[in-house]
């Protein structure tokens, strides 16, 4: 049986306490909530933590609230099944939550956990003896990337479903750390680095996801994977458009998941849509451009060539559903 290595578990009751505990434990400690991402990684000995700060019991971190000024606040330990079933949040966000992993994992996993999901790679998310056989990689004690050995960059993939749609919604993250709290756009949570993929400050904890009022924004999320359940996305496409009454696209956001170590904005495609109607021709043009910034590597289930090929198709379908 795959078992967890020993660690000290701390169970703070308040966020301030959690921040303090995390700081006290120093490097090598981490936060955990649902555990559905972290525990398998620890069982495979990909990561080691001498201490885990368990956020489940932290008061006020769970739940979906309507903000006084409009918009929605979603606590980081809100469970994914709760988000998936919520009618208070934008439908695309609930949909994205509803297609994460499996029913059981959605009952356990949290919004914060999905936002902070470790990047994944088919050379990394393997048991320890497998990685011993192949040789360790940059992300875990090795000195070379197994995907692109010439590079000193880690290409592990951002494989979570919520970030692309959260970015398309213009959502922000509130994080709390030893230096206080700050709120910033979801996109700024990520760095295109498979190892150091979260742009959190040392000791900082994601506390909530803030979704602005939808206010006429049309949003969608498409998840591409081999099976209708359990699997991580091989490609995620989130898109939002704001249409003027005559059908002209005033603004568009297109975000790809699972094609890099961070969600990828498709600015060229967005610019092609701006000020134009969402006709089939315009959509095709933008969809083709959407594939440009994506550089999928051969480190997920379906091949990188395939994933690159189908980006325009799924972007096109996403935009069609919004037109």
């Amino acid at each position: 049986m795959m078992r967890l290595p020993p660690f000290a578990r701390l169970a703070p009751r308040t966020l301030a306490e959690a921040v303090e505990m995390l700081a006290d434990q120093g490097p090598g400690a981490a936060v955990v909530a649902g555990g559905t991402d972290l525990y398998p990684n620890m069982k495979r000995r990909q990561v080691e933590h001498h201490a885990l700060v368990d956020l489940r019991a932290v008061e006020g971190m769970r739940g979906i609230r309507e903000e006084p000024g409009g918009g929605i606040s979603i606590g980081a330990t809100t469970r994914l099944s709760h988000l998936a079933g919520s009618s208070a949040v934008p439908r695309a966000l609930a949909h994205a939550a509803s297609v994460i992993a499996s029913p059981q994992i959605r009952n356990m996993g949290t919004v914060g956990g999905n936002l902070c999901l470790d990047t994944r790679c088919s050379w990394y998310n393997e048991p320890e003896d497998w990685r011993t056989a192949v040789g360790f990689c940059l992300k875990a004690a090795g000195d070379v990337c197994r995907v692109a050995p010439a590079k000193s960059h880690c290409w592990a993939v951002a494989s979570s479903d919520l970030p692309p749609v959260a970015i398309a919604l213009g959502a922000s993250v509130r994080a709390v750390g030893p230096g206080g709290e700050r709120t910033f756009p979801v996109a700024d949570l990520y760095r295109d680095d498979g190892i150091d993929h979260l742009a959190l400050l040392p000791g900082e904890i994601v506390a909530e996801l803030l979704v602005p009022p939808v206010d006429g924004l049309r949003v969608t999320y498409r998840k591409i994977r081999r099976r209708g359940s359990i699997d991580f996305p091989e490609l995620g496409v989130a898109a939002s458009v704001r249409l003027a009454p005559e059908g002209i696209c005033e603004a568009a956001t297109i975000v790809l998941g699972s094609v890099a170590s961070a969600p990828v904005r498709c600015r060229e495609a967005e610019d092609l849509l701006a000020g134009r109607p969402l006709t089939p021709e315009v959509i095709e043009e933008a969809a083709a451009a959407a594939a440009h910034p994506a550089k999928p590597q051969d480190n997920t289930d379906l091949s990188h060539v395939y994933r690159k090929w189908v980006i325009p198709i799924h972007v096109s379908r996403a935009l069609q559903s919004l037109s």
Binding site: M2, R9, G34, G35, T36, Y39, P40, D54, R56, S81, P103, Q104, I105, N107, M108
Partner: peptide, 12 residues
């Protein structure tokens, strides 16, 4: 609610 016992700490 259905949970996975393999990824749930007993203390939790």
């Amino acid at each position: 609610e259905p949970w996975l016992a393999c990824l749930t700490l007993a203390v939790d």
